[in-house]
Design a binder for these strands. Structure first.
Length: 315
DNA sequence: AAAAGGGCCAACCGCAAAGCA
DNA sequence: CTGCTTTGCGGTTGGCCCTTT
């Protein structure tokens, strides 16, 4: 972390127009927070200027998104979040912003740090402990249990872990697909919020489900798997949980209209019009039915955007 | 008790895409 | 169409802090 610069050695004081860098002081946070609450988000360089901050707009944006936003969820990641991150990362690769978009209250930076510091290490450990004599000769891939997360082969895990340059880990998916000559479902994700079951090769989006009857946060069960031709197959109906997004929930509960307004701005700007639709339709996503047989990776990526944004309460 | 090492995480950097004149 | 500005993203850095030696 960079030192806060209370004396302003790096900043514009001293007669120059040099912008401040490094850690944000509480005063700067206050200024930015007050400005954002009163004026909402505009052009970030204007925000920096009008809020009286000697920071570049970029720095203000980052500070707001990663730290000051009222809808941020602080604290450790829950096991459900961990699981979801791993699962999404296996599909999306290092597309942290897209992963973060499905974890309300979490930032891409947070998830990225969490992945690099914790999960990556854990996956590596799982790999090494599961193969005590794994010198450099990898022969038969074995299944590795990631602490109850999912069961993948060593090759798969290594590909996922090491192939961080691949934007979508497509090479690892291809590797899995090649190895799996037939549809081979991955184990269902416990506590996941978009789960799949039913007719192989197709899924429907069922909407308007009420509550998770089991109370474990899981709305149905099913499998996502890889097809021998390198495509991704879905086995099942996609059950979408009732979407009481942070946005909608806070709209109902908060008495602070200003904060509510800000939240709406943030979420609407992040999610385009999807959340507005959700809210207008009584907190349930009433998106069009999705049908498909086999997905190529890029198609899957596309269709991930049509998934509702996940929301669950931690603790 | 002090030094070394490693983990964590806030923030910066560079690049690409989008928007606009 | 072109060039400039702004925004957004992912990778990387650097410093605090905790643990180990």
């Amino acid at each position: 972390m960079r030192k806060p610069d209370p004396q302003g050695k790096n900043n514009t004081n001293n007669g120059t127009n040099k912008l401040r860098k490094g850690l944000w002081s509480p005063e700067e946070d206050d200024k930015l927070m007050n400005y954002m609450l009163n004026n909402g988000q505009g052009c970030w360089s204007d925000v920096a200027r009008n809020a009286g901050l000697q920071r570049c707009g970029k720095s203000c944006r980052l500070r707001w998104i990663n730290y000051l936003r009222p809808d941020l969820k602080r604290g450790a990641f829950s096991p459900q979040e961990e699981e979801l991150i791993i699962h999404l990362h296996s599909i999306l690769g290092n597309r942290w912003s897209q992963i973060a978009a499905r974890l309300p209250g979490r930032t891409d930076n947070e998830i990225k740090n969490f992945w690099n510091s914790t999960i990556k290490k854990r996956l590596k450990n799982s790999f090494s402990t599961s193969s005590p004599n794994n010198s450099d000769s990898i022969t038969e891939p074995r299944d590795v249990n990631l602490g109850g997360l999912m069961s993948l082969s060593e090759h798969d895990i290594m590909a996922m872990c090491m192939d961080s340059s691949s934007p979508s880990s497509s090479s690892s998916m291809q590797a899995m697909a090649i190895r799996n000559q037939q549809f081979e479902p991955l184990p269902p994700l416990n506590n996941c919020y978009t789960s799949l079951s039913g007719v192989p090769g197709y899924f429907n989006v069922s909407t308007g489900l009420s509550q998770d009857s089991t109370g474990d946060g899981c709305y149905g069960s099913g499998h996502l798997g890889f097809l021998g031709n390198g495509n991704i197959g879905i086995e099942g109906d996609l059950f979408v949980p009732p979407l009481e997004s942070i946005c909608a929930e806070e709209r109902n509960t908060t008495t602070d209209n200003t904060i509510s307004k800000i939240n709406n701005n943030i979420i609407n700007s992040n999610n385009n019009n999807k959340v507005e639709t959700l809210v207008e339709n009584g907190n349930y996503w009433e998106g069009e039915n999705l049908r498909m047989g086999e997905w190529k990776l890029e198609d899957l990526m596309e269709d991930l955007f049509s998934f509702p944004y996940l929301d669950f309460q931690v603790e």
